[in-house]
Structure formats: C-alpha cells, structure tokens
C-alpha cells in the first residue's frame, strides 16, 4: 500500500505517494526526475547513487524512501547555484577528473561531504572519503587531484 510522505530534496519539499519498498534512488529518479544519482549496481557496492542526507554520504539504493523523511537530501542537481558550478564541480571539470561521467555525481557528493567537515584534508583523507565510489575510467588520479586542488583554494 502506498504511503504519503514528504521529502526535502535540494531545499524543496515534495509530497509524494510511495510504495514502502521503493528506495530513495528509485523515487529520486522515477518520481522526482532527478536522474543525477545513478544506478550502477543497486547493491550498495559502487557508490554511483551517493546522495547526502543531513550532510552525510548515503547510498540511496540502500535507503527506503519512507525513511528519508525529515532529512535534508542533497543530490547533484542541488549543488550548483544559479547556474554557477560548485568549486568541486569546477575543479573536476578543469582537472580532467571526468571521463564517462557515470560515477561523477556520486564522487562529487562524497567529496563535498568530506570538505564540508574537513576543508583541508590530506591526500589519504581524500582517498578514504572516496573509497566507496568506484570508477573504471579515470584510475582516480585526476579525481584526487581535483579535490586536493579545491581544498587549497
């Protein structure tokens, strides 16, 4: 039986009717049209579906939508403001940290969760923060560079 719930995504609240077995990832993508969070494995292994709940990184494929009520949900779509890229996004662009782009939204959100808590991380801390986000294209080198560079500015 569908349940009615209210989700706050990127600062906007949405009233929705949702089946309880729906994950946050499914609701974001299919009901709210926010397709930035990707389905790479759907088993919590790849990190492509990472979103922030109250500033912490979560795998939206392993969160029931009904349990995301009352939390501030941030997806990649909410990161740039008025068409201006967030510094992490800008740095990913400039440093060639993007190839196919499928893991990118999750990577950037994991990086944001780190930098919000720890604006001057070491390289080891950056790697630790990204350890739940798989990438098969870049070898991670330029991703780490991009984040270290953001932290410098």
């Amino acid at each position: 039986m569908k349940q009615s719930l209210e989700l706050t995504v990127n600062g906007q609240s949405h009233e929705l009717l949702v089946d309880p077995h729906r994950t946050l990832l499914e609701v974001l993508r299919e009901q709210l049209g926010l397709t930035g969070a990707k389905e790479g494995c759907n088993l919590g292994d790849c990190g492509s579906c990472t979103v922030l709940l109250d500033g912490k990184p979560f795998l939206s494929c392993l969160v029931l939508a009904v349990e995301a009520q009352g939390r501030e949900i941030l997806t990649i779509e909410g990161l740039s403001q008025n068409g201006k890229l967030h510094p992490i996004q800008e740095s990913f662009v400039q440093h060639g940290a993007v190839q196919c782009g499928f893991c990118t939204p999750g990577m950037i959100l994991s990086a944001k969760a780190l930098l919000d808590r720890n604006p001057r991380p070491t390289e080891a801390e950056v790697k630790e923060a990204l350890s739940g986000n798989l990438c098969r294209c870049t070898g991670y080198v330029k991703i780490v560079e991009a984040i270290m560079e953001t932290a410098k500015t």
């Binding site: 930035g36 969070a37 990649i76 996004q89 400039q94 993007v98 782009g101 990118t104 939204p105 950037i108």
Partner: peptide, 11 residues
C-alpha cells in the same frame, strides 16, 4: 576540459 564535462558534473 572535456566538451561535455560541465554537463556531466551537474548531473
């Protein structure tokens, strides 16, 4: 940067 990098980082 890739021609589509901005499109990719914004989701």
């Amino acid at each position: 940067p890739l021609i589509d990098a901005v499109t990719k980082v914004t989701g």
